[in-house]
Amino acid sequence: DVAKSIIKLAVYGKAQNRSYERLALLVDTIGPRPSGSKSLEKAIQIMYQNLQQDGLENVHLEPVKVPHWERGVESAVMLEPRFHNMAILGLGSSIGTPPEGITAEVLVVTSFEELQRRAPEARGKIVVYNQPYVNYSTTVQYRVRGAVEAAKVGALASLIRSVTSLSIYSPHTGIQEYQVGVAKIPTACITVEDAEMMSRMASRGTKIVIQLKMGAKNYPEAESYNTVAEIIGSKYPEQVVLVSGHLDSWDVGQGAMDDGGGAFISWEALSLIKDLGLRPKRTLRLVLWTAEEQGGVGAFQYYQLHKEAISNYSLVMESDSGTFLPYGLQFTGSDKARTIMKEVMNLLQPINITRLFRGGEGTDINYWIQAGVPGASLLDDLNKYFSFHHSHGDTMSVMDPKEMNVASAVWAVVSYVVADMEAMLPRS
């Protein structure tokens, strides 16, 4: 009755709300934890102590090098057709503007294709992208490539409609990427509301002028750590089930949802198993990644360090899409492994979360999944998730203790059973 015991402890027992309260203590104390910042390193040290005090095994920090970008002071003011202070968030790794800022006329486009068609008009201008929201993975291309495409046609800066399906005048930051051989121009996200307003103004033929000031700076790489803790396997200790979330966040809100929730339900999964005195045959390894937001930087260095043991990884799990009430588990793996995982999910009948979807993935575990290791992630209300994603709204007020209890139970049952089954999950 292991599954029922875990569910009982997590959802109805004395471990209720523990993951929420632990998370609140950290993010209330530390706040957001951007890569390269002192607050991230302080959070890592706190988690190192937490995991030791919790009685987990082989608690250690694996050093990695991470990017260090700081936002500085930033502003965007519409000067024409009227004075209007705009809410903006510079995009990660963007360069800053000169101290006096960039003041230029605006060209509003709704797609990369329109930008190409109107390329001659873009020279010397600030390009504003008012791209429609399709879904996150499609639309985020504008945030990632917007500056490069605008620079190719001679723009001075780019302002990108926030990638979100809901907005209450809330800018959403995120990483962007420059391209070798293409000029670097400052780039920031603006609110859906301002992007749509400027689109309407432009369609009436109104001239728009904006003054953009960004104090963003890219510093040399910083020292950071992936945080690791284990329950060492009783029979096949060198075989691993990896349970993870990332500890870094953007410099907005508290970084509670993205990805404090994922990190803390992963810790909770091991805590629940330890509290019940359970020790699976395989090692359960908790990893709290660093520098996920810059593109899985900490996780890539973990993969490089550990990939020789890839045949020992039965399953890699990452929760990085919210810890609201789970709809079920996303899974990537062979048909035979999928058959087995369906049986595992049936154990969660008591909390009615038995569905197994496709597309198990996560920025930090994709290296392993692409190399053939089965992968799993939680699926929950993604519309709600992306409404707060990378915005000042990412605070504890978004999180729900009862939902985190259930997410922790799912995470613990799945990780424990796969770690304790006699057979490793079969590969494709």
């Binding site: 009755d1 599954a3 060198e238 035979k336 595992v344 049936n346 154990l347 006699e422 490793m424």
Partner: peptide, 24 residues
């Protein structure tokens, strides 16, 4: 491709299903 011969080929899916249900 596993170390201890505890791979699926040596045990039928039925065995594994039975094993998993024991965790219920």
């Amino acid at each position: 491709n596993t170390i201890h011969g505890n791979d699926v080929s040596q045990r039928t899916l039925e065995d594994i299903k039975e094993e998993i249900s024991s965790y219920e």
